[in-house]
């Protein structure tokens, strides 16, 4: 049971990430590879502030949200000068920069040694020490993020995003200041990714920079591409699928030497197959 609860917690964290990224990639057509950076900032905010400064989880998470908001706002402005593939490359640059900072700014982040002993959240004296309670809390946030996604999708704000993802020039001529829209959704998405990172740090209790490399951002991308672009349900399905796949392989009793390789092979094959036969993903509402 404990095992499934722990898988459940990881699912919640990945679902939060998938929902946040899908807002930017699926709803708005912005190919962001920067989200590993925001994930990392959220995680380290909680790790540093809780262990070194005695913050509680919520305070630390809020600081992380603020940091991500500011970073995303500034980076978003730079990114708005680029389109398509260039946007992806420049956004990947942020992931590389943040990873480098996490690795090298030893006085703050302890570099490769990582930060351990990260505590759990508490509300009115109740501490979320048990996995089951942590899962419930994490799930609450998934529901919140899901609702936010649906709200945006159904609103006029969402309609404008969906319009600018296909034809930004047309959207501008219909009266929308698209740079502001892109900036807002990117910032919001970054804050959400940071919240996922905060939960991750608290759950795993030890973090080091290796969990926040560019490769993670590519993994997040795979989740939403397979699950479905521009779809809240697709985001969640993608997270569930890509999380349970390696775990299922574990249970198949394959020799360990092949299991990890097979997992990578399957991810790669999934992406290729998806793009070839179903570019919108399983439950997607937008074809790239």
């Amino acid at each position: 049971m404990e095992y499934f609860i722990n898988i459940g917690i990881l699912f919640c964290i990945y679902a939060m990430l998938a929902l946040s990224l899908n807002m930017v990639v699926g709803l708005s057509g912005l190919v962001s590879l920067a989200h590993a950076a925001f994930y990392g900032i959220g995680a380290y905010a909680v790790a540093i502030l809780m262990t070194a400064q005695g913050f509680n989880f919520w305070g630390a998470m809020c600081v992380g949200m603020l940091l991500n908001g500011i970073t995303a706002f500034i980076v978003g402005k730079i990114l708005s000068k680029f389109k398509g593939d260039y946007y992806a490359i420049v956004s990947a640059g942020l992931s590389v920069i943040v990873f480098s900072v996490l690795l090298n700014f030893k006085s703050l982040t302890k570099g490769p040694l990582g930060i351990y002993g990260i505590g759990k959240p508490a509300i009115a004296g109740f501490h979320f020490y048990s996995s089951a309670s942590f899962l419930a809390l994490a799930f609450l946030f998934v529901v919140l993020f899901y609702a936010l996604f649906v709200l945006i999708d159904k609103s006029s704000f969402g309609r404008a995003l969906k319009s600018l993802r296909e034809d930004e020039v047309l959207t501008v001529s219909l009266g929308y200041k698209t740079t502001k829209y892109k900036s807002l959704i990117f910032t919001l998405s970054a804050i959400m990714a940071g919240v996922a990172g905060s939960f991750f740090a608290s759950y795993i209790a030890f973090i080091d920079p290796t969990s926040f490399q560019l490769a993670e951002g590519i993994f997040f991308f795979t989740m939403i591409t397979v699950g479905g672009l521009s779809s809240a349900f697709g985001s969640v399905v993608g997270a569930a699928l890509l999380l349970t796949l390696p775990e299922a392989l574990r249970f198949l009793g394959l020799p360990y030497e092949t299991a990890a390789q097979l997992q990578q092979l399957i991810y790669g094959a999934l992406l290729v197959l998806m793009m070839a036969f179903r570019p919108q993903g399983l439950f997607g509402k937008f074809r790239v």
Binding site: F4, N6, L10, S211, E247, R250, Y256, A260
Partner: peptide
């Protein structure tokens, strides 16, 4: 019983949970 963590501490958590529970 051996589990692979691919040299990533974060993967050790799921591996540990699986080894304990399953």
């Amino acid at each position: 019983i051996f589990e692979d963590n691919q040299q990533q501490p974060a993967k050790s958590a799921t591996a540990a949970n699986k080894l304990i529970a399953s």
